[in-house]
């Protein structure tokens, strides 16, 4: 059984399963052995799935807020923020043998769930697009926005299965 590093606090990933790695809120994980990466309950949070298809190395981030670079906790918990999370995820993918130049991205989540919480979702998505663009990583598919919660599975073949609260499933 292989151990996966999780950046949330640097401990072992909070959940391992034969073939499944669960990524929590403010967390990120990398898969190198064909495991399915999953994260659930994406409301205004955004999931960024990166894959280098030639090596099969994949990573999934579940970030809560757009901007962390100015904040100390961005460094302590890089997965909490879209920008620090993407940067850390790219670093971990590279360390696991992926080439940053071959990475492609799929983005899901960032819903506008509540009127109470001013547009966190759309700002998370905008920040993700901006950071990926700056890193030269193309966003090949997205299932973002609206007012619907989502759960995602990042499969070994690099496709991202996005399931909405009503059970509707799309494969990106």
């Amino acid at each position: 059984m292989s151990h996966h590093r999780s950046s949330r606090g640097g401990e072992l990933s909070r959940e391992r399963d034969s073939g499944r790695i669960k990524v929590g809120v403010s967390d990120l994980s990398v898969a190198t052995d064909g495991e399915t990466l999953t994260t659930s309950g994406l409301g205004s949070c955004v999931a960024v799935a990166l894959v280098d298809e030639s090596t099969g190395v994949r990573g999934l981030l579940h970030a809560m807020l757009p901007n962390g670079t100015e904040s100390e906790t961005g460094i302590e918990r890089p997965g909490k923020y879209v920008d620090t999370g993407i940067k850390r995820l790219i670093g971990e993918l590279e360390a696991a043998g992926a080439s940053p130049r071959r990475l492609e991205a799929r983005v899901a989540g960032g819903a506008e769930m509540l009127d109470l919480t001013d547009a966190i979702g759309p700002r998370n998505v905008a920040r993700a697009e901006q950071c990926l663009d700056a890193a030269g990583i193309p966003v090949v598919e997205r299932a973002v926005g609206d007012d619907v919660g989502r759960t995602v599975r990042f499969r070994a073949d690099g496709r991202l299965v996005v399931r909405a609260a009503d059970g509707f499933e799309r494969t990106l």
């Binding site: 309950g41 409301g43 509540l114 109470l116």
Partner: peptide
Amino acid sequence: VHDIGSATISPLVAKLSR
């Protein structure tokens, strides 16, 4: 709210987590 439980509460958590 009417959605996946964790998705309904995550925006509140995000807002406080700033």
